[in-house]
Computed example of a mutant assay.
Amino acid sequence: MFLSAATGYVALLGLVAMLGGSAHAAVALEERKLPMRFSWVACQPNCRGWVSAVGIVTAETPRHFDDFARDRPLKGETVVLDSSGGSVNDSIALGRRFRELGMVTTVGATHRAHGERANVSPEAYCESMCVFLLLSGKSRYVPEQAHVRVHQIWMGDRADNARAASYSADDLMIVERDIGRLAKYTFDMGGTGDLLELSLNVPPWEDLHELSREELRLTNLITTDKVAQLGSPNAAVVELTPKSVQGRFVTTAAASAGQQ
């Protein structure tokens, strides 16, 4: 049993291409439900390549990433996420590995067509704990067509029928402990309390909440607005000014006081 959430630079703009046909979309959906796998995608000669990370985070995922990264110079490279979430604590561990390597994160579906150069579709999903992996990037970008969705964390073996399930005191202790771990991780990565509030307001029996462009900026999930094609020697990066974590607490506290 594990606790789960219920369910560079982004210069991939120059590489973006929509997946062709429903067959590709169906394959992408199935891959998001499988354990996360990592692959290096080369796109020479006009770009640097990227790491494709597809699937759910399990207890084995951090170790699999360590094995994948061992003989590869991944420092500062881009991770393209397409994931339905997974284990809370293992996602936290994986996110810290991404940050240690100074990786850039974005959302996209990597597409490799026979005889064609690999490209990335912006029509992809980053849901549940994947959102906190996105947060781990030193720089973070979400294309307009991507779907970033949040939910409460819950006991993984009871998320599908959360209202009917029974819970012990130990279960509640585990949930509260992991919420604390997630909060610390969020602030360590430069996220704001708004991300936790938006996530923890959505129970597992409701649809995931899709973050708007305004919410993506409010939570600091977007820090990079535009970049040129990945690998361009003159890529111009427009960095946004992140929201201050402390400032968000002050704002939230003042708003709450005004409502009392």
Rank of each mutant, 00 (worst) to 15 (best):
L211N: 03
S168V: 02
M1N: 07
A118H: 02
N201K: 09
G85M: 01
E214Y: 08
A228L: 13
R72E: 04
K33G: 11
E30Q: 09
A26Q: 14
T61M: 00
E239N: 15
D171H: 07
A164H: 10
T110R: 07
T110Y: 07
R213S: 14
R117T: 15
L15Q: 07
M173K: 10
A159G: 09
D194W: 15
Q259A: 10
F132N: 02
P204D: 00
R213V: 11
A183E: 14
T110V: 14
E60L: 04
S91C: 01
A69D: 00
W154M: 09
G49A: 08
L74D: 00
F65G: 02
P35G: 03
N46R: 10
K184T: 14
V10K: 13
T223E: 05
Q44E: 15
N220D: 14
R213W: 11
L230K: 02
G258P: 08
P62W: 13
A118R: 06
C43S: 07
L211T: 06
I56C: 06
Q259D: 12
E214Q: 08
W40E: 10
S121E: 10
S4L: 04
W154A: 12
R158L: 00
G258D: 15
S244P: 04
V245R: 12
R248E: 10
L195A: 13
M1D: 06
S52M: 03
T224I: 04
N89A: 15
A109R: 14
E77Y: 08
V54R: 12
L218W: 00
V237S: 12
I153G: 00
V57N: 00
A169V: 05
C43W: 02
S4R: 02
K184P: 01
A236G: 02
D170T: 09
S4G: 06
M103A: 04
P242N: 15
R140Y: 06
S136K: 08
S168I: 02
A26L: 15
Q229F: 09
L29H: 12
M129L: 07
E31L: 15
I92Y: 06
G55W: 07
G180I: 06
A162L: 04
V120R: 04
R48N: 12
A146I: 01
S87M: 01
L240M: 12
H64C: 05
G156Q: 11
P35L: 10
T219L: 00
M36F: 00
T7A: 07
G193L: 09
D188P: 10
V238K: 12
G86A: 01
H111M: 10
H209G: 02
G115C: 09
M173I: 10
N46W: 12
V79H: 05
L195Y: 13
G21P: 14
A93N: 09
C43I: 06
S244H: 10
H209I: 05
T58W: 01
T223R: 06
L101H: 04
V250P: 08
P45M: 09
A5L: 03
V237T: 13
V41S: 06
S212A: 07
L15P: 01
E31F: 05
P242Q: 13
D178R: 11
T105Y: 14
P204G: 01
E100C: 08
T186P: 14
S199W: 04
L133H: 01
G49W: 11
T7E: 03
A113T: 13
L19I: 08
M173Q: 12
I92K: 03
N201Q: 12
A11E: 09
G85Q: 01
R37I: 11
S168M: 00
